[in-house]
Simulated assay, not measured.
Amino acid sequence: MFKLYLIFLLNFYKARKENSSFNTIGSKNIILSRTACLGNEIFERGFSKKYKRINFPKSRVDHILDGSGSKNNILKLIKYFNRLDILSNSIYMQNNKFLSKRNNIKYIMIDSFSELTDQRFYIESIDSTFYCNYGDLKKECLENNEIKCFGNIDLDDLHYGYLNFLNKVKETYPGVKVIFIHFPTALETRKEYIERAEKIFHIIESLKKDFPFLISLSVSPEKVLSASKGSEEYKKLPYHYDESVYEEFIALLRSSGVIDYNE
Rank of each mutant, 00 (worst) to 15 (best):
H63K: 12
L163W: 12
I74P: 09
R53E: 15
G257Q: 08
K49R: 11
Y162N: 01
C141Y: 14
Y107M: 13
L116N: 11
E233W: 04
E232C: 13
Y80L: 12
E115S: 10
R60V: 14
L217K: 04
L237D: 03
P238Y: 08
A186F: 02
E222M: 01
E205V: 13
F81S: 09
E171I: 02
S90W: 08
S114M: 07
F211K: 00
L10V: 07
S255C: 08
D154L: 15
I78H: 12
N95Q: 00
S244I: 05
K199E: 11
R60W: 04
Q119N: 11
I25G: 10
E188A: 14
I123T: 08
K76W: 05
F201V: 06
I105Y: 04
L163N: 12
L166H: 07
G135W: 11
F150V: 02
S256T: 05
F8A: 01
E146D: 08
L6Q: 14
I126C: 11
E232S: 13
R102M: 13
S48R: 13
K101W: 02
K3E: 15
R34F: 05
H202D: 14
I74E: 14
F249L: 02
L77N: 02
N11E: 07
K168L: 15
R120C: 04
Y239V: 01
I42N: 02
V224Y: 09
F8S: 02
I105P: 06
Q119L: 07
I105E: 03
Y193P: 02
E192V: 10
L32M: 08
R45V: 12
K106P: 08
K101E: 03
K139Q: 06
T24L: 12
F56R: 01
L87D: 06
G230Q: 09
K58R: 02
N145M: 09
F2Q: 12
I74F: 11
L217A: 11
Y160G: 05
H63Q: 06
F249Q: 00
I105M: 03
L10Q: 02
F211P: 01
E124S: 15
S88Q: 10
K58S: 09
G175V: 04
K3G: 06
E263F: 04
I91R: 14
D156Q: 13
K52D: 14
T35E: 13
L217G: 00
T24Q: 13
F12Q: 08
V219G: 08
K223L: 05
H63T: 11
V61H: 05
H202P: 05
A186T: 03
Y246C: 06
V219R: 03
S228M: 10
N144W: 11
L142M: 08
N104V: 11
E222C: 08
I86E: 13
Y246H: 05
L77R: 01
L252I: 05
I126F: 08
S255N: 13
L155V: 14
F2H: 10
F98T: 12
L207I: 00
R60H: 09
I194G: 07
R190M: 06
E115N: 14
L252D: 04
S128Q: 00
I259V: 02
L187I: 09
H182V: 07
K71M: 12
Y193G: 03
L142T: 13
L207Y: 00
Y134A: 06
E248K: 10
Y246W: 02
L4R: 07
I259F: 05
L207Q: 01
S68C: 07
T129C: 02
R254M: 03
L77M: 15
Y134C: 07
L237C: 01
E198G: 05
T117M: 14
